[in-house]
Simulated scan of single mutants.
Amino acid sequence: MRGLVLDFGGVLDGPGADTGLMAGIVADARRRGIRTAILSNDPGGPGAQLLRDLAGPFVDDVVLSGDVGMAKPDLRIYALVAARLRLDPGDCVFVDDLVVNVRAAAAAGMVGVHHVDPSIAVEEITILLDSDIGSDSDGDAKGRGR
């Protein structure tokens, strides 16, 4: 996998999110040359500038539905974010807390991860990106009890 695409609300921020854990995965991916993006159904406009500003320091690109005129689960938006990362959809892992969006990403050719629990999502992402970030020496995701 050469790309990591994440939803914002529910994955990187908000209830059910572990911002620090997910930020570690994003930082590790970027260090290893994996292209990263946020794909959000945010309506855009002036109020979304803080999200747009994450492009560069945090991820390689930010795609907001309100800015591009389409929204998840429209298959075209997954193709768009992959193209903006200069990747084929099949080279991307997509992470979202809504199963309908994960299924649509898979239908568009991406590998989908349904984010229900941050430590489990990180474990799945780590495997898909062939990374050891987020795992302890026993291979268990950090923060996940035995």
Rank of each mutant, 00 (worst) to 15 (best):
M1W: 11
R2G: 05
G3W: 02
L4G: 03
L4D: 02
L4S: 03
V5G: 03
L6H: 13
L6D: 10
D7Y: 12
F8Q: 03
F8N: 03
L12M: 15
L12P: 01
D13T: 02
D13G: 02
D18E: 13
T19H: 14
L21K: 13
G24K: 05
G24R: 15
I25C: 00
A27C: 00
A27T: 08
D28N: 04
R30Y: 11
G33L: 07
I34D: 00
R35I: 01
S40A: 15
D42I: 03
D42Y: 06
G44F: 06
G45K: 08
P46Y: 09
P46H: 12
R52A: 10
R52N: 08
R52I: 09
D53S: 15
A55H: 02
A55K: 02
G56S: 09
P57A: 12
F58D: 07
V59R: 01
D60S: 02
D67G: 08
D67Q: 00
V68G: 10
V68D: 04
G69K: 03
M70D: 05
M70W: 05
A71T: 10
A71I: 03
P73K: 12
D74E: 14
D74A: 13
L75D: 12
L80F: 04
L80R: 14
V81H: 01
A83W: 11
A83P: 03
R84G: 07
R84V: 13
L85E: 02
D88A: 15
P89N: 01
D91L: 01
D91Y: 02
D91T: 05
C92Y: 00
C92D: 06
V93S: 03
F94A: 06
V95Q: 04
V95K: 04
V95C: 07
D96G: 11
D97N: 14
V99T: 06
N101G: 14
R103S: 06
A104G: 12
A107W: 00
G109I: 01
M110Q: 12
V111Y: 00
H114D: 11
V116A: 12
P118Q: 13
S119K: 10
S119Y: 14
I120F: 13
A121V: 05
V122I: 10
V122M: 07
V122E: 01
I127Y: 13
I127K: 09
L129D: 03
D130I: 05
D130V: 08
D132M: 07
I133S: 06
D136C: 14
S137K: 05
G139T: 05
D140R: 14
A141N: 09
R144K: 14
R144C: 09
